[in-house]
Computed example of a mutant assay.
Amino acid sequence: MSSPPPTSETRDRLIEAGIRLFAEHGFKGVAVRDLCTEAEANIAAVNYHFGSKQGLYAAIFDTTLAADEARFREALATITALAERGRDEPSQLATAVNLYVRNLLGPLTGEERMRWFAVLAIREMAFPGDGFEQIYRRRAEPAQTALTRIVIAARQADTACETDCLQAHALLGMIWSFGIAKAILWKRLDWERYTPERIQTISDIITDLMCRALGIAPDRRPGERADTSTTG
């Protein structure tokens, strides 16, 4: 059997197919033939482009995380800086919480591809496999560290204790629930999808709840529009 041509299109289709199939069925539940059929690729394409099914699985995490890495790191740096300023300016802590929620909520409620990847990432966190270390090192640990910085700034502490880490984990769970348990929410509210308006409402509610839990005055109540006026 001849090898498939070395096209980036075939490689991209295999990654797209892998994100959805692995999210739906887990790593062990997907055969190479399934991946190639879904991607409309030659049966040898997975080995040709990735070396193995494991290679494709690793490439899915590396490619997807790398595509958003710069934005994610920049957002966390801004959030951390706001948290530090919030020790002297409490309003900055509310801004940090709002920015944190919007940046973490986005992938869980955004475009179809990222929603599937979020499901795959959640699967890895529930049942750690070959993608867990990438998720932990490149997303989970930095995200939890940034939120812990907000927690310790809110209580005017210099270093984090175990309770701070537990509180950050609990607060982060509020955001994750809108990805993990979205089917329950959609059924309860008779929704078919997340719309930009619904995502904004969810973001406002989570921000308000997190601020209250941390004893921070939110910059606005849920449902209120942000002040977009400017001063000369």
Rank of each mutant, 00 (worst) to 15 (best):
R71V: 07
P128K: 10
A77I: 04
P142G: 04
V101R: 00
I150C: 01
I60Y: 10
G51V: 06
H49F: 11
V151Y: 02
L56F: 13
A157H: 08
T95Q: 12
E84C: 02
G51T: 10
P107G: 09
A118I: 02
T64L: 08
G106Y: 07
A77Q: 14
R149Y: 01
G51W: 09
A153E: 02
V101G: 00
E84I: 05
R85K: 15
R71D: 13
R85N: 13
D130C: 04
N47E: 06
E141S: 13
F127C: 05
F132I: 03
E112A: 15
Y136W: 10
T145Y: 07
A59P: 02
A45Q: 03
L108C: 08
A41I: 03
A154I: 02
Y100L: 04
E69V: 01
A44L: 08
M114Y: 15
V101P: 00
E89Y: 12
A121Y: 05
A77K: 14
A41C: 09
V151I: 04
R137K: 12
Y48T: 04
T145K: 04
E74D: 15
R87A: 05
L82Y: 09
L93H: 10
G51P: 03
A67M: 09
A45D: 05
L105H: 08
D62N: 12
R155D: 00
A157L: 02
R137M: 04
V97S: 01
